[in-house]
Design a protein around this nucleic acid. Structure first.
Lengths: 207, 207
DNA sequence: GTCTATAAATTGATAGAC
DNA sequence: GTCTATCAATTTATAGAC
């Protein structure tokens, strides 16, 4: 589906990358469009040609996060046979960028939390919430594939996503990569290999 | 230690209460001093007589949260004999205000997350972080009293606080009191009654 | 101590030349 | 499509009368 970007799309994507990083590092409220323009090496006035409002830019960031998330899920579904092992990979995934997560928190979770506070901009909050629900749905599918009942799978998924998110919050607040690492590893060890007679190899290639 | 408030302290406390509620509902960045003044029925200009800056007001809110937290810990230490039961009470405590937590998230955790983003106002972030560390320290003491080793107690405490915080984030994002309730109850059920030969009745009256 | 202006700074967004 | 200049609104903070 994605084609080679046109010349003008490069600028759009440069702005999107700058905004993605800045929303992670500084949050939505603190990040000004001048910040974004500056990091992307684009004059302030030109930002509005690509994104009509600040909200539209944030919305694009969230959409990009969601797309990337779904690609990761598809990749895990296709590349890892055991749902148990997929979940383990999900849990330890933050270790790939542990320094940034210790410094700035989870790029998805912190967006969810902050945007919920922006009362009149409810659409943005709803969009960010889809990031968390995407996690929960995918994790739930893995527990289903491990033989859990639908209700149990949903509950376990919600618990697990909460534990991962909470871990990132604590590690970020403590600014400690070590806490993040140790805690995620403990969390991975609590994973059951299967529920009862788990029918593995069931979910493939659906994010 | 607390004495009867003077007349002028009433206004100060009214502002503090308004700010506390608004920081929970709208976050720091979204809440204007005009909002606070309005909710406290105080003219905008008068706010600055009691709190020199917005940061000073937020700092007072955090200090008040921390004091309230420590009182709660002391109350639990003194009123509940079993550390295991103290932890259960900690876990289900959010159910006392489940509606507000489902709507606005954890008043402590969301402050931590948001204030971390305000780069140049680092002192505020550090102050908010003390809320989370206060939880972790108290929980750690309970695990110690249950016979865990210091290292294990610290790890378990970090895990438990993360799980509770993550649960509030997920429930808030899903805006679901039911998710909050069910998930916290499951979490409470994972509590061990003791480690090995737990020497209970050890920690009392120290927050 | 209280309150009404209003200053000063920031920032989202636009106009309009090129 | 690009970029400079600027508007308009918001908001922290202060001045100064009472």
């Amino acid at each position: 589906m994605p084609v080679a970007p046109y010349r003008s799309d490069e600028k759009r994507e440069s702005l999107l990358r700058a905004a993605t990083d800045l929303l992670h590092e500084q949050g939505f409220a603190t990040t000004t469009l001048a910040d974004v323009a500056g990091r992307a090496n684009v004059p302030l006035g030109n930002v509005y040609y690509y994104y009509k409002t600040k909200d539209a830019l944030a919305h694009a960031v969230i959409d990009a996060h969601l797309s990337a998330l779904k690609e990761r899920f598809t990749s895990w579904n296709d590349g890892i046979a055991e749902p148990h092992e997929r979940l383990r990979r999900y849990i330890v995934a933050p270790l790939d960028t542990s320094d940034r997560i210790a410094q700035f928190g989870c790029p998805h979770g912190s967006l969810c939390q902050e945007l919920e506070k922006l009362g009149r901009r409810a659409p943005l909050a709803r969009a960010a919430a889809r990031l968390l629900t995407a996690y929960i749905e995918w994790v739930s599918q893995q527990f289903l594939a491990m033989g859990e009942s639908p209700a149990e799978a949903r509950a376990r998924a919600s618990d697990l996503v909460a534990a991962v998110q909470g871990t990132m919050l604590v590690a970020h607040t403590l600014r400690s990569r070590d806490v993040l690492s140790a805690q995620l590893k403990r969390l991975a060890n609590t994973l059951p290999r299967s529920a009862r007679s788990a029918s593995v190899h069931q979910v493939r290639s659906r994010a």
